[in-house]
Simulated assay, not measured.
Amino acid sequence: MKILAIDDQQLILLSVEKRLKELGYTVMTANSGQKGMELFDSFDPDLVLVDINMTDMSGLEVVKYIKSKGENKAQVMVMSGNTEENIIIDGFTLGIDDYMKKPVSLDEMAARIKRLIGVPKVNNNVKVTAGARMLQKNCVGVVIPCYNEEERLLSIEFKDFAHKNLGYHLCFVNDGSTDNTLEVLKKLQDGSESNISIYDCAKNGGKAEAVRQGMLFLEKDEQLDYIGFLDADLSTDFRDFDDLVETLDQSSFKIVSGSRMSRMGANITKESARKIISMTINLIIRTILRMPFNDTQCGAKVMDRSVVPILFGKPFITKWLFDVEMFIRMRKHYGKTEAKKLICEQPLKRWIHADGSKLSMKDSVKIVGQLAKIAFVYR
C-alpha cells in the first residue's frame, strides 16, 4: 500500500514518513504542492495526505489536480492547521475523504489512514515508536542559550518534549562553555538531529549574543512559523511556552512575552532579595521604554519570524538587558502606538527560580548602569 505525503514543513513530513513506514506502508514525500502533483503521476499512490497552507500553492489546488485524474481512485486526506469552515467545506466539495485538524496525534492519523485503505503487512523486525506524539499546528523554533550548563541542563525533559511534540525545533546555543556542556548537548541531540540542533560559539559572548546568533540561525529555516527562546534551566516550562505560541497563533500580535507576575492560581516563586531588586529595575525599565511592561526580563518569548531581522539584525549593547533593547527596537520600527498593539505580555502559570543562576547580586547592581547606557544610546 502506497502513501504520498505532501507538506512544505520538513519537521512534520519526516515524522509522518517515519511513522507510516513503521506501520508497513510504502511512502513518498514532497515538500511542495508542485512536487506532490508530479510525484502523484509517477508514484500512483493509494492515499494522498496533503496540507492546505503551503507556500507555493494551496493544498486544495493539489486536491483539484488529483480529482481531475478520473481514472485514479486514490483516497485523499487533508491534515492541516487551517480550521476555517469554508476551507473544510471546499475540501469535501472537491471530494476529499477525510480532514484532520492539527494538532493531531500520529496515532490518530494512523487510525484514520487504516480506516481508509486498510492495514499493510508489518515487518515484524520494525519497531513502532511508542508514546503519544503530536503533530503541531505550526512549526516553532526555540533557542536555548547554554553557558556551563553541564550540571543544570535538563536533558531528559528537553529530549522528551522534542520526541512528543513534532513541529518544534530546539536549537541549543553553546556560548563558549568551559565545562562539558557541548558534550552533553551532543548526547542530547543524538538520534534527534532532525529537530534538535547545536549552534556552537567559539567564545563566550554573553546571553544576549548567544540568543541573537540562535535566532538568526533559526530564521534561515523557512519552515518555521514562529521563533522564540527559553532558559536552559526550564524555570518556565514547556506547557507555558505552548500557551505563548497558541496566543501568538490566535491573534495579530508579533511578540508574546511571558510575565512572572504573582497572582492567584499561579505557581510563581522568587528569592525575596531578587524580587525586590526586580521590582526596582522594572520601574526604571518602564520609564525608559515608555510602555507599561510588568516583566521585560522573563526568559520566555516567542515571535513571528518576520520581526526577527528587526530585533536581532544588529548586536545588542548589553549582555543581559537585550529584552529591553528588543522592545525599544520594536517601538522605534513601528512607533509606540503600533508597537503596543503588536506585543502581548502573558502571565505564566508556573515559574520557579532555579539554583545556580549566572546573574549574581553584584551583577544586578551593574544593571542600573547598563540601563543608563541603553537610555543614552536609544534616546
Rank of each mutant, 00 (worst) to 15 (best):
A339D: 05
P120T: 00
N31L: 07
G313Q: 02
V63C: 13
E149T: 15
T83L: 04
V173N: 03
L283M: 11
M361D: 06
H163Y: 12
N72V: 12
E271Q: 11
L244S: 05
A375W: 02
Y226E: 01
E246F: 05
T236V: 15
T247I: 10
L20D: 02
V211S: 04
T129G: 05
S262W: 05
N294V: 09
D97M: 03
K270G: 07
G191M: 05
Q10M: 10
Q297K: 09
Q297H: 09
D249F: 06
R115P: 00
T55H: 13
A208G: 11
E22P: 11
I277T: 09
S357H: 08
D97Y: 02
A273H: 09
L248K: 06
L106F: 00
S155D: 08
A30W: 03
M79G: 05
L342N: 04
A232I: 02
L311K: 02
L185G: 13
A300H: 03
P315H: 03
S306M: 04
I117F: 09
P145L: 04
N86C: 07
D44Q: 09
E61S: 13
F238T: 06
I255V: 15
F92E: 00
N294P: 04
V368Y: 12
D107R: 02
R329C: 07
N174M: 06
F316H: 14
S32C: 09
V78Q: 03
F327C: 05
A273V: 15
K186M: 13
T181S: 15
S80Q: 04
K207E: 14
V50G: 05
S235P: 07
